[in-house]
Simulated scan of single mutants.
Amino acid sequence: MTISPEMVEYIRTMVKGDHAANDRIEAKLDAQGWDDFPTLLGAVFYFAVNRRFGASTTAADVMVFVAEMRAAAPAGSPEIDANAAESLVRAALDPSLDLDIDPQMAGRIQGLAILHILSSPHTTDEDLDDLLANAVEAARRA
């Protein structure tokens, strides 16, 4: 598994809202290839969701989160399926759950959830660095 530094920076600039840097990194990744990016995105999603929710999370908590996430989506964002989003969040909290979600939809949900969770003013640069480092380590083991 090859997780390039550019992939990590792509996620960091996305979360930080640094659109110019994100566009530059995206162009570089378009030339290099995105082969292992879905694995990294899934790992970041897993750690972000588990950072956001505790052990006592209910189905209602997940539904409220997904509704808030969809309402806060940037203008022009692709529509995401609420049921698929709820299933994906629940599966991040309980990996024993089976999923049957279109990979493209899963990627959109993961990206939006990562933005919604990690763009919070409560996420420090150090928090983001730690989460990304954990996600890279997990993705390399996958």
Rank of each mutant, 00 (worst) to 15 (best):
P38L: 04
R12G: 06
S4M: 06
Q110F: 00
G17E: 06
R52D: 09
A27R: 12
L118H: 10
R108C: 00
R108S: 06
H19F: 14
I114D: 07
R12E: 10
S77G: 02
D100V: 10
W34R: 07
G107F: 00
L115P: 05
P74D: 12
R51G: 12
E126I: 10
Q104V: 15
P78I: 04
S4N: 03
S56T: 13
F37Y: 15
L97N: 10
E137Y: 06
Y46S: 13
A27G: 08
N50F: 08
R108F: 11
V89E: 02
A84H: 03
R108Q: 14
D125M: 02
D125V: 08
L88R: 09
A106K: 07
S119R: 15
L128K: 05
Q110H: 09
D18K: 14
A43Y: 05
G42I: 03
W34Q: 07
A72G: 10
D127A: 04
A72Q: 13
Y46K: 15
Y46C: 12
A135K: 04
A21Q: 14
G42W: 13
E126Y: 03
E137P: 00
I101T: 03
I109R: 00
F37M: 10
F37C: 05
D98S: 14
F47V: 04
E68P: 01
H19N: 11
G54I: 04
L132W: 05
D130Q: 12
A84C: 08
